[in-house]
Simulated assay, not measured.
Amino acid sequence: MTDITTKDLIAMFVGIAAAIEAEKGRLSELDGIIGDADHGVTMSIGFSAVNEALSRLDQGSADPATVLSTSAKAFLNAVGATSGPLYATAFIRAAAAIKGRPVLDRDAVVDMVSAMAKGIRDRGKADCGDKTMIDAWVPAAEAAEAARLAGRDLSECLDAALFAAQAGAETTKSMVASKGRASRLGERAIGHMDPGAASAVVILSAIARSLGRRS
């Protein structure tokens, strides 16, 4: 496979921002049913700030971990809502997972996805079944790990992660939320997808498109 460089990671974040922008209305509509109706806007603001910060990096000297740590700071500074600390933690953990690597291979990217999922889980103190983004991120990380153990290439690992995230997001429709504003709705939240899980699918889809094609 072709190694994933700093330039590729920056391009990945450009792809994520574009995908979130395209889905901004749908994500906010989902959030309007069980939350504040601003999730799409908030995520768009966050990733726009990330891209602005990354545009100032010297791609010749910055390594992949620097891309992720810079993204964490930019996202947190731009987003004060719950998603801010969650994704900032995800990117910080991902940076730690690949620290010292000038380029990334399949194993490093899978480690990055796993670290992001664990960071979100640890910071949010949520579990699968709580009707949160965890219901997409954890299955995605587990599927990527399983595909790696089966000897799959990077594209296949990321496709497996995306498929698992999509399935996980779908399962949130049948759940009663136990975290966040949606928990106040009780059974009235049943039938609606969690917006955080939906945006996780958008992000993982953009990652798969951007990095998977490099394998």
Score class of each variant (00 low, 15 high):
88 A>E: 13
62 A>P: 05
53 A>R: 10
59 Q>F: 00
110 V>P: 08
84 G>Y: 10
84 G>T: 10
90 A>S: 14
77 N>G: 15
76 L>C: 02
112 M>S: 05
69 S>F: 10
113 V>S: 04
115 A>Q: 06
105 D>L: 13
62 A>M: 08
98 I>R: 11
46 G>T: 07
86 L>W: 04
81 A>P: 09
96 A>I: 02
55 S>N: 14
109 V>E: 01
100 G>F: 07
103 V>C: 06
59 Q>P: 01
109 V>P: 06
51 N>K: 13
98 I>F: 11
121 R>S: 10
65 A>P: 08
108 A>H: 10
110 V>Q: 06
71 S>P: 02
54 L>C: 04
99 K>A: 13
116 M>K: 01
100 G>E: 07
55 S>W: 00
96 A>T: 12
81 A>W: 01
77 N>I: 05
75 F>T: 08
57 L>E: 04
56 R>N: 08
87 Y>G: 02
84 G>S: 10
68 L>F: 14
121 R>F: 00
99 K>W: 01
55 S>A: 15
121 R>H: 06
80 G>K: 11
86 L>E: 13
107 D>C: 08
98 I>G: 09
48 S>A: 13
111 D>C: 10
71 S>C: 14
69 S>L: 00
113 V>F: 09
71 S>K: 00
119 G>M: 05
118 K>G: 10
77 N>D: 13
100 G>M: 10
80 G>N: 11
52 E>V: 13
110 V>S: 07
79 V>Y: 02
59 Q>K: 15
70 T>E: 08
113 V>L: 15
55 S>R: 01
92 I>Y: 14
47 F>S: 04
105 D>K: 15
73 K>M: 15
101 R>Y: 04
67 V>H: 06
125 K>Q: 13
47 F>I: 08
84 G>E: 01
62 A>C: 09
92 I>D: 03
89 T>E: 06
64 P>A: 06
86 L>N: 09
121 R>Y: 00
79 V>C: 10
95 A>G: 04
48 S>Q: 11
81 A>V: 02
79 V>S: 07
51 N>H: 13
60 G>Y: 00
55 S>M: 06
118 K>E: 15
122 D>H: 14
95 A>F: 01
61 S>Q: 13
114 S>I: 05
120 I>F: 02
117 A>C: 04
104 L>N: 05
48 S>E: 12
57 L>W: 09
93 R>E: 14
101 R>A: 14
55 S>D: 15
80 G>W: 04
48 S>R: 09
86 L>Q: 13
100 G>K: 08
79 V>G: 09
79 V>I: 13
78 A>L: 11
85 P>F: 14
65 A>S: 15
65 A>D: 04
76 L>H: 07
108 A>Y: 09
51 N>A: 06
95 A>S: 13
51 N>F: 14
90 A>P: 12
98 I>D: 04
47 F>K: 00
67 V>D: 03
97 A>K: 10
121 R>M: 15
62 A>T: 12
